[in-house]
Every structure is written in C-alpha cells, then in structure tokens.
Simulated scan of single mutants.
Amino acid sequence: MASKHFQCTRCGRCCRASIPLGLAEALDHDESFLLALVFSMETWNLDDFAANRPVLPITHEDLFTTLAFRKDKLAMDASRDLVFRVGRAPSGTQRLATFVTVGAAALGDFHAGQARCPSLAPDDTCSIYDRRPLGCRVFPLDPLFPEMLQHVPLAGLETRLPCDFSPQAPEIWREGSLTDPEALALLARRQETIRRDSLFLPYYRVAAEAFRPMPTLPEILKSLGGNGRLDLPFAPALVYLTAAGAISPERAERCLERQTALARKAVEQALARKDKAERARTAVLRNCLSLMESFTGRIAQAADTAPKG
C-alpha cells in the first residue's frame, strides 16, 4: 500500500460511540461527559491465522509486528505481564496472544437504542471541536497500531464511514510513514497515554478488594472472554490518580460529585423515557450511581488504605 488519503467531512458518524480518554485526561471533561473505567481485551491465535477472522484487513506478518509493538511500546515494565500474555489454548495445541488495555471513556447519550455524543449539535456537527479530546483529535489513526501499519485501520474505516478517502483528499500516510507532523505528534501522545494508564492494571489487581462490590481483575478478565470490553464506574480511577499523586483528594471529590450528578440525571431521563430497550443499561447506571455515592467523601481514605503493590 503506497499511500492513504483522508479528509474529515464532519458528518458526525464517528461520534456514535463512547470517546476514548486517558485516565487523567478524563478529568478535563468530567463536567460534560459521564465517565466510565474501561477494560478491553483482544485475543489472537498465533498458530492458525485463519481462526482469527480479523475485522481489519491485516496480514499474518503485520499482525506479529503489531503485537510486538503493543507489548514493547504500549505497556510499562511493571504492567507488561498483564497487558500482553502468550499461552496455550484449552486444547493445548495452539498459542494464543492476549492484549489488555485499560483507560477511560466519555459515554454517549442513549436514545432509542443508539448512542450519541452529548457534544453533537442538532446538525450532527461537533460543538466542542476546538477543544475535543485527544481520542477525537487522533482520528482516523489507531493508537494500537504502529506508524508503519496505520494503513491497516485506515483501510478498515474506508468500508464503514463516509469520510473522504479519495486521492483528492490530503495525503496522511505514505510508504510506512505519516506525512502530517501534527498527526504523528497526536498519535505519539495517545500511545503514551495508553502506556502510562497500563500501570492501573497492577494497581487494581492488588487494590480491588477496596472497591467491592466491583469485580477483581481476574473476574474482569474472565468476563471479557478473550475478546470484549467492560465499562465500570470511574471511582477506582480517582482513587488511583489520588494515590499516585496525579490529582489532589479535593479534585477527585469534585470529579466524583460531578459524575454522581450526571449519573443521577441519566438514570432519571432513562426512567422517564420508559424505553424497554434501555432497561439493562439503566440497571447498570443505577448500580454505578450507588457505588459512586458510597465513595463520596472518602477518596483520600481509600487512596491511603488501598495496597500499592
């Protein structure tokens, strides 16, 4: 693949799901978005490439390059054994590689079974475009792929979104390199955020009992089932950021107060709509609200008492 072109048409089609955020970055948006703590897992069969049925058009060789990149560049030393693991399938005959990430997400509003970014204007344009999160700014690049293989996620987007990928659009990638220095800088920033946030995994593993009734890390990984995503309340991230000295307990409490108010509003609106399609999501929101309320006023205490590893 010699080159790729891209031009955003600001159609709003990519704003129908949650926005990926770094754990610390999420606090810059805690007044506008309901935040979630997000665990994700991907599992790849290293011996039988056909068994993977990849959504993206990736070759076996490019897959190995991507997995090596994720292991070496998207995890800190203390978290690498949790982020990237190679083991045997239950049959014992094939090797499986598992890749785990953790971060935050700004959840969209939910109406009639569909998500929608709260910052989308009625005409589907972004109302916060000039101060949109890093996860939006880096689009259409995928931080889980190295620069040299960005043509893989770009090719996948061409089949799903009405963005301008024609040769008339600005060139974004050519022969293994990004041609836009700003895009390259944004990609590096987003990748470094994922790398830093990987340290939350070992922290949560040893501190999970302090967050009950939330699941432990082994319970989370089991529920992901090899491939999947799990959204949980953001409160443990606030405890972690406080314990790490990234934010003050007072700032964490302000975030928790804002998030509790947003969760309460979301529950009230969902109940008022009486949409059966929302029942499961509303039940999850109510459980999240209950847990956030239980942490109110004790972030500092939780940060001091939770094991540090």
Rank of each mutant, 00 (worst) to 15 (best):
L161Q: 08
L161K: 09
L161S: 03
C163W: 00
C163K: 11
D164F: 04
F165D: 09
F165A: 04
P167R: 08
Q168H: 10
G176C: 07
T179K: 11
P181K: 11
P181M: 08
E182Y: 08
E182D: 12
L184N: 14
A185C: 03
L186M: 12
L186V: 08
L187Y: 02
A188I: 02
R190P: 04
Q191T: 06
E192M: 13
T193R: 11
I194M: 11
D197K: 02
S198R: 07
S198C: 01
L199P: 03
F200K: 08
L201K: 12
L201W: 01
Y203M: 05
Y203G: 14
Y204P: 01
A207H: 08
A207S: 12
A210C: 09
R212W: 01
P213K: 13
P215C: 11
T216A: 11
T216I: 04
L217P: 02
E219F: 03
E219P: 00
I220Q: 06
I220Y: 06
I220C: 10
L221Q: 13
G225E: 05
N227H: 15
N227S: 15
L230V: 14
L232I: 07
L232N: 13
P236I: 09
L241T: 13
L241A: 08
A243E: 10
A243I: 02
A244W: 00
G245L: 00
A246S: 10
I247W: 00
S248I: 05
P249R: 00
E250T: 05
E253P: 05
R254T: 05
C255A: 15
L256H: 12
R258C: 06
R258W: 04
L262S: 01
L262T: 05
L262M: 04
K265V: 13
A270I: 01
K274L: 07
D275E: 14
D275R: 11
K276F: 05
K276L: 12
A277R: 15
A277N: 13
A277C: 06
R279D: 13
